[in-house]
Simulated assay, not measured.
Amino acid sequence: MMEQYERSAEFVDILLASYWPELGPQVARALDGVPGPVVDVGAGGGHGTRVIAAAVPHSEILAVEPSPALRSVLMARVHEAAELRERVTVLPEGFLQARLPARLGAVVAMNVIGHFDPEERGAVWDLLADRLVPGGRAVVNLQPPTEPVAVPQFRSGEARIGRRTYEGLARAEPAGPEQLTWHLTYRTHQDGELVDEVAVSHVWWLLSEERMTKELGERGLTPKAAGSGMYVIS
């Protein structure tokens, strides 16, 4: 997984930007009234970190991002904004390895839960059950598909910077009863010509609403649908 982001980080942040005008307000609503501190799991370049900071304006934020390439974008984005620089701590470890406070007000995990295998995912649920304060919650989204089916290639994003256009393409194929392998291609065009192409692949662990509900229920936690594949866990 780390190698994937080292090769694709220059494209990931700019192509994800188009998703946050829709995703951001949903995350903000899910965090309404939540206490701090807040953990941003797999913070990437910090699009979600900015949303969290605006939604919980007086709380400490811990932005967890193990990829050095994505973390460099995150660090720059946090440092250039005084309102982030004072409240956001960037942690370079994975979520389960990070040095986190003993008690947490909220945990936000956007587009990331499939990076955890079933054993690691259980550890994530255990951490939520152990550390969320009364009234605290986690905000998680499940990305389709949740079953091991082939996904035909589609355009996942496009951005233009100067003379160059950057395009993301994605497709997936089953890799077992609980996994997909995603194949991602990033193309750079200038003056109508393809000038660069980067291809990466990674495994994604599948999780359905039913299975998540069962796993959380075993730990005394309950997910509540919050729209567009998003769930609030408390």
Rank of each mutant, 00 (worst) to 15 (best):
E3G: 15
E6G: 14
A53Y: 07
H115K: 02
L142Y: 06
V232H: 11
T165H: 02
H47F: 10
L16K: 00
H202G: 08
F154S: 03
A102M: 05
A82I: 06
G33P: 10
R163N: 14
L15N: 07
A129G: 03
V78P: 11
E193N: 09
L216C: 13
H58S: 14
T213K: 11
P174E: 03
G220F: 12
D13Q: 07
A159D: 04
A30D: 09
A63N: 02
V133R: 01
V38N: 05
L84G: 01
S201T: 10
Y5K: 06
P148E: 06
Q143L: 05
Q179I: 07
S18H: 14
V195H: 08
R187N: 11
V232M: 12
G192K: 03
P152N: 10
A28F: 12
D196G: 14
T213A: 15
A226C: 00
P152M: 13
P145Q: 02
M1A: 13
V139E: 09
G135I: 00
A28Y: 05
E158H: 04
R99V: 08
V39F: 03
M212G: 10
L128R: 00
L132E: 01
G45D: 08
A17E: 14
A69T: 09
H115Q: 14
G24D: 05
Q97N: 10
A199S: 13
P35E: 03
G135H: 05
A123D: 12
A81E: 15
L100S: 09
S234L: 07
M212T: 04
I113K: 01
G36T: 12
L206S: 06
V27K: 03
G220H: 13
M1Y: 11
V112Y: 10
P57F: 07
A159M: 04
G192M: 05
P134D: 12
V200A: 06
Y166C: 09
H183I: 04
V107D: 01
P21D: 08
E167D: 02
T222P: 04
T185C: 13
R187W: 03
L74I: 10
R85P: 02
P35S: 05
G46P: 09
W125I: 07
A102I: 01
E215W: 15
H47G: 07
T185P: 09
G192W: 05
L184K: 10
W205E: 07
Y231P: 06
